[in-house]
Computed example of a mutant assay.
Amino acid sequence: MKTIKIVLSTLLACSLFAFTSGDKAPLKVTQAFSKKFPTVKKVKWDKESATQWEAEFKMNKVEYSANFLEDGTWQETEHEISKKDIPATIKTALMAAFPGYEIEEAEISETPKELLYEFMIEKGEIEMEVAINANGTIVKQEVKNDKEDKD
């Protein structure tokens, strides 16, 4: 009987641990999230930095992430998009600036200041991260070094 109690206690403790989040976002953060995304019910929170929280969630079957400061200030929302959903003007700007590159990943990043299309592109051994604003202007380009990224 004692063995059964120990086993049941262990199972109960494990199930409680499995269903609680390791990080609990502050009330101001969760309230700001609920105001910005009122239809979202299921959220996974992670502490992104000393002052920032990241929410991971799904909307319309698409995976999103949103970042908020400790005081509830929204910073950014990101989600992946398929290649077919990239606006023609954005795709044209990307391909004109980086001929011969293949799009590996595409996502939309929205901040209070702007909307960006972010890409991971590849040509042979070269991998780049590129951001293009809604006007088709390249605002960031950075070569990714696989060796450095894996260290």
Rank of each mutant, 00 (worst) to 15 (best):
Y101F: 15
S82V: 06
E127D: 09
K123L: 08
K61A: 13
E107M: 11
D146F: 05
A32H: 02
Q52C: 00
E80K: 07
D46E: 13
F119T: 08
V29N: 07
T39C: 03
F119E: 08
D151K: 14
K36Q: 06
G136H: 11
I138G: 14
S82M: 06
K24G: 04
K44M: 10
V7Y: 00
K44R: 12
K41L: 10
E142A: 07
E118P: 07
K147C: 00
K83L: 08
E63M: 07
K58R: 13
F17R: 01
A13K: 00
K147D: 01
S109G: 08
S109M: 06
P99F: 10
M128K: 15
K28G: 04
Y117C: 03
A88I: 07
N67P: 00
M1S: 15
P38C: 06
I132D: 09
Q141C: 07
N145K: 14
M1Q: 15
I121P: 12
A55C: 07
V139R: 05
D46G: 04
E142P: 05
T137Y: 10
T10H: 02
Y101R: 10
W53R: 01
E78W: 01
C14N: 03
T30G: 04
E70M: 08
F68N: 05
L115F: 04
V43Y: 12
T111G: 05
T89W: 01
A18Y: 03
N60C: 03
K123R: 12
F57Q: 05
A18H: 00
K147S: 05
M1G: 15
E78N: 13
A88F: 09
K113S: 10
